[in-house]
């Protein structure tokens, strides 16, 4: 290889590295806001993967594109190319490098997972096999780490076709909106009354299937006040897409205030998108499809929220 080739290759690699690094930085903007300590960890990992992936993708496609542009056969050139059948060194290198990369990615992912520790003390599966990864909490770098280290008393999450109900056992408050204090480790007990649902809050980068007959322990730390979406992520039947609600992360004072206010309210029927649509089909206000499992009655809760976003759109429709 002459010096010019080496220099050209080095320059190309450098250019690729710069573009890949830039792509990795862009990756942070492809997500919802970072509303939990865990989301920062996931975003860092993803950015790393995007950087690495961009480098490989651009390297491979760049090479192909070069061939396509500059190594075409002439119109009347029916000769063959050089009969190169392989190169042991090259083949060893391109087996070893991916292997090393894979081990690196796996180790990094393991480390991040270990820091997230989203599973609480109770494991779902009964087989008690070695568990090495329930250790540090996700937010050792957070300012309020003392408060963080002590999880809140578990909030019950009840999923059913097709509504979410949250129960705060200490105050015996029920709500269709999940209110959480900021900068505190939060513990949830996920339960399903019928099928498997998926508890998913994109802004927290967290997801856990909710499996009937099991109580699943789930822990995380919200770090940003605001209103986020909670969605059912595992297909749960007819009104699956409508099984969404809001998560409100509040300052500790606002959170306590909200709990006190909610406890004072008498339970009322909350708006439920699935029950609403099903009723409209019964009333023949909507075109009927095939027969569906009827939704559970709209939940009766202390704090019925302010209705979901989707119904506003639907009301304006007809």
């Amino acid at each position: 290889m002459n010096i010019r080739t080496v220099l050209t290759l080095a320059a190309a690699a450098l250019l690729l590295a710069v573009i890949s690094f830039w792509m990795g930085q862009q990756a942070y903007s492809w997500f919802p806001p970072q509303a939990s300590a865990e989301s920062k960890l996931v975003d860092d990992l993803f950015s790393f993967l995007v950087t690495l992936g961009s480098f490989i993708f651009l390297g491979v496609t760049g090479t192909i594109l070069y061939s396509v542009l500059f190594q075409r056969a002439g119109k009347y050139d029916f000769s063959d190319g050089p009969p190169i059948e392989g190169n042991i060194t090259l083949e060893v290198v391109w087996t070893a490098v991916p292997l090393v990369l894979v081990i690196w990615i796996a180790a990094y992912s393991y480390q991040i997972y270990d820091q997230m520790a989203v599973r609480g003390p109770m494991e779902l599966v009964h087989l008690h096999l070695p568990m090495g990864m329930e250790s540090a909490y996700a937010a050792p770098t957070e300012p309020d780490s003392a408060a963080v280290a002590d999880p809140l008393e578990a909030i019950e999450v009840h999923a059913k076709q097709w509504s979410w109900v949250f129960r705060y056992p200490e105050q015996d408050v029920t709500s269709t909106e999940l209110h959480l204090p900021v900068d505190r480790r939060v513990r949830l007990m996920l339960e399903s009354e019928d099928v498997i649902h998926g508890f998913y809050i994109p802004a927290f980068r967290l997801k856990q299937d909710v499996i009937p007959n099991h109580v699943i322990d789930f822990e995380f730390t919200p770090i940003r006040t605001g209103k986020y979406r909670l969605r059912d992520s595992l297909y749960s039947g007819t009104y699956f897409a409508a099984m969404q609600t809001d998560v409100v992360v509040q300052s500790p004072e606002d959170y306590r205030q909200w709990l006190a206010d909610a406890a004072a309210q008498t339970p009322t029927v909350a708006y439920n998108q699935a029950a609403f649509e099903y009723q409209r089909i019964i009333d023949k206000a909507l075109i009927r499809g095939w027969k569906s499992i009827p939704p559970a009655p709209a939940p009766v809760v202390n704090y019925p929220g302010i209705g979901s976003r989707a119904d506003e759109g639907l009301d304006s429709e007809k």
Partner: peptide, 27 residues
């Protein structure tokens, strides 16, 4: 097909990573 496959292979490795998958699984 090769170019598409390289792209999908890279997103595939991302999906294999548990923390990333916990966010994007079922999306």
């Amino acid at each position: 097909g090769l170019i598409n496959f390289v792209f999908s292979g890279i997103t595939g490795v991302m999906l294999a990573s548990v923390p990333v998958d916990i966010h994007v699984n079922n999306t």
